[in-house]
Nucleic acid binder design. Sequence first.
DNA 1: CCCGTTTTCTGGAATGAGTCAAGAATAAGC
DNA 2: GCTTATTCTTGACTCATTCCAGAAAACGGG
Lengths: 143, 143
Amino acid sequence: MPATLDFEQMLREAALRVTRPRVAVLGAVLAHPHADTDSIIGAVRRGLPEVSHQAVYDSLQALTTAGLVRRFRPAGSVARYESRVGDNHHHMVCRSCGLIADVDCAVGDAPCLTASDGNGFAIDEAEVVYWGLCPGCSTAGSS
Amino acid sequence: MPATLDFEQMLREAALRVTRPRVAVLGAVLAHPHADTDSIIGAVRRGLPEVSHQAVYDSLQALTTAGLVRRFRPAGSVARYESRVGDNHHHMVCRSCGLIADVDCAVGDAPCLTASDGNGFAIDEAEVVYWGLCPGCSTAGSS
DNA sequence: CCCGTTTTCTGGAATGAGTCAAGAATAAGC
DNA sequence: GCTTATTCTTGACTCATTCCAGAAAACGGG
């Protein structure tokens, strides 16, 4: 688990100013993958009780723009953030309990980018969300 | 283009009560694929000026549950509705102008459902969103 | 065709994630 | 240590969506 110094390093490498809120936000996202904004605010305030929600929103925006974290928003849910960036993995969402799990796409590095012609669009990202039931809910429902 | 009588038929077959607002909402979604709720309210009110926004929300909910329309919510946008149901096509969204286009998945009927093991999830749907630039914005930006 | 029951619609208020704005605080460079 | 540009605090605000209670309308049986 990376330490505060590592977070500072990451921020500096991304040409971002190193501030307490940003370090805390980055740490929170690293520690709680798929967390929503509210959870992140809570996690950050455990270490820095005085941060405003605005600072968290701003930091998340900055980190997202810099590519240090990824924002993702499954339909019917609020925005969530994760630290796995660079690889192009996708997500599975449980319809019952909302559990989110990472999935590496089976199709290699550029999953489903085989959208063929694509109506002339210049596609730069394919976002895939799998909907279903997680193991727990699946078992519970089949009884 | 289907007439009002067809819409009534569709509603009855879905075991839904036939009401003026519902017929109008169904017609609006059929006529304006990918329309957001506000546009649908506007379209409906062209024929029925008195409908409340709540009736439209309720109708859309009922139609979605019944499987007559599909709700889809790209990140950073409000809810949108479309009438292509049953086939599993996906969407392309232009990052610049927000244009949405349908895409038939290149992988056949069950696109990307090859999520392999899937961590034990029972997957029932794969939702794919392609992000990029539409032909218009792509050309404009490359000058 | 009329009635009663049940579902749906109207109108209005409330919720809540996210955004905007102005001034105070703080990080980075010299 | 000082200056300046960026970031944070505070608090108000937007706006899609939901909640609620009473009025209206649709369906089935008489």
